[in-house]
Design a protein around this nucleic acid. Structure first.
Lengths: 177, 177
DNA sequence: GAACAATACCTCGGTGACGATGTATTACGT
DNA sequence: ACGTAATACATCGTCACCGAGGTATTGTTC
């Protein structure tokens, strides 16, 4: 998820680590902050894997900056990760939002639509958080107001997302043919 | 998050590992599956910390079961974690839902309300995923349909949750006085 | 002019999570 | 009789992540 965000932000726009950090903090930081000691090693990993290169530049106000840019391999890897996300990236909202933030880089509308369809399939599966045996429980059946909250919120999210998915899929499929 | 789920499920209801695993899978598994190799070490950690004890029982159909039950210390620790969650438990929806699933065990309505108020404060902060400098962008300002989706979905979730929070807080505060 | 905050990068130790793999038993289909 | 699935538990190596701490420079506040 972090690596995807790094690749996504660097795609077509070289940045140095500190700015990248603030970008990532803005994107996911309010929900799930990323520590510096996680970001810098992640950059190193990607560099070692040949997905990005760094160019040292005198710092504008302080220490020298390392301006990071994607290699061609890095660009390909970003697109591969966007086009063929692991199931976790589809099901976990944090991961999914990160993926959506950069899905435009995938350019090909058919490939974008294919990813949205995987999310659609996931949301259409009947799944709950609470069960009576195998039967998923509905919010109305719960006494516990907190568990009822979970279902109420999840249902609202699901509805909004299904509507958006169907609309967006229609416009991705439509104009193309 | 996993440890909270274990403590929560065991509170007042001894279970063996395999059933616990299925409970956890039902609760969060569709979004974020938990590997066996994560669960069993987590049980050991909690046991080592004196929060739970195990009693071996002949297996009903297969290998012997380890029936797990909370110690008194375990019950106190559950309540402590519910009453004083780390900020991550408040902001990350996955963690938050897990917390909500067991918040009823906190019994004291004032303590429950205090936790809900922390979430309320978090949701009321103006925060976005995308910025123009420091200014949070609204869905309508984005060209990118995928980023617009993120904001649309997040807004729907936020609305539903705010409504539920206010309603639930009112009923927690109300009858008590 | 002395702190302090912000910029800018880095390392280290600890730990929680995961995939792969192992062990043993019972039940079921073929 | 044989393979597969489900039950039930466990270990091992690897790795991402985190908090704490470190280094150095510039700009701002008292």
């Amino acid at each position: 998820m972090l690596e995807l965000a790094i690749l996504g932000f660097l795609y077509g726009a070289p940045l140095h680590g500190y700015v990248l950090r603030r970008h990532i903090a803005a994107l996911t930081g309010h929900v799930r902050p990323v520590a510096e000691s996680t970001l810098y090693p992640a950059i190193k990993r990607l560099e070692k894997a040949g997905l990005l290169v760094r160019a040292t530049e005198p710092g504008a106000v302080a220490a020298p900056r390392h301006v990071l840019s994607l290699t061609e391999e890095g660009g390909r890897e970003l697109k591969r990760r966007l086009a063929e996300p692991a199931q976790r990236e589809i099901t976990d909202e944090n991961h999914w939002f990160t993926l959506l933030a950069f899905l435009r880089h995938l350019e090909d509308p058919a490939a974008q639509a294919a990813v949205l369809r995987r999310r659609l399939a996931f949301l259409e599966e009947p799944a709950s958080f609470f069960y009576d045996g195998d039967r998923p429980l509905r919010a109305e059946e719960l006494d516990d107001p907190f568990r009822r909250g979970v279902l109420t919120i999840a249902r609202a999210t699901s509805r909004a997302e299904l509507a958006w998915l169907r609309e967006t899929l229609a416009s991705l499929d439509g104009p193309g043919r």
